[in-house]
């Protein structure tokens, strides 16, 4: 039986790199990623209540809201954050379509879109909507984001 009664360390893979990180049992995955010892601040605290999606990361390639899961639940799994996305079609399309303004929600949208295209390479508009409505953007009209994901799905 796995037992954590205080600070301890767990193994997981973050952005392709096997890591051995310290956590406390009450940490969320978001707490862990943003901790100064890990320093991945691309996942943003927007509500810390699972509502806005700004903290979304991929866990074993599935999008999860990192504020809504315990860090310990990521043990042995692979985590992909926005820092692990390098010149992907989705990033290029977001740039091309001006699919952000303030940028605070952007990493969450990018990761949901990235996971979507991994699972469904050519999603229809309904599928794009269903995945991306997990996230909130307060600046754009979403048109730009839709256009970007649409284009990325065609590349």
């Amino acid at each position: 039986m796995k037992t954590l009664t205080g600070p301890t360390h767990i193994q997981l893979t973050i952005n392709g790199e096997p890591r051995d990180v310290f956590i406390e049992p009450h940490y969320t995955l978001l707490d862990l990623l943003r901790h100064p010892l890990v320093g991945l601040t691309g996942a943003k605290p927007g509500c810390e209540n699972g509502d806005c999606g700004a903290c979304t990361v991929l866990l074993n390639q599935k999008p999860v809201k990192s504020c809504m899961m315990f860090a310990v639940d990521a043990e042995g799994k692979t985590v992909l954050t926005v820092e692990g996305l390098v010149d992907t079609p989705v990033q290029r399309a977001f740039l091309k379509h001006f699919a952000f303004q303030c940028g605070y929600c952007t990493s969450g949208f990018l990761l949901v879109a990235h996971a979507l295209l991994h699972e469904i390479p050519h999603p229809d508009r309904h599928q794009i909507t269903e995945w991306l409505r997990s996230n909130i953007c307060r600046c754009t009209s979403y048109e730009e984001i839709l256009a970007a994901v649409h284009e990325a799905s065609e590349s």
């Binding site: 996942a43 990033q91 952000f100 940028g103 605070y104």
Partner: peptide
């Protein structure tokens, strides 16, 4: 001209820093 935002590359890579991202020891 449709000049991309100067900080756009940072915003699609998680390198854009906001107040809460700046940690001071």
């Amino acid at each position: 001209a449709n000049i991309p935002r100067k900080e756009a590359p940072n915003k699609v890579t998680g390198r854009a820093r906001y107040t809460r991202d700046l940690y001071r020891p």
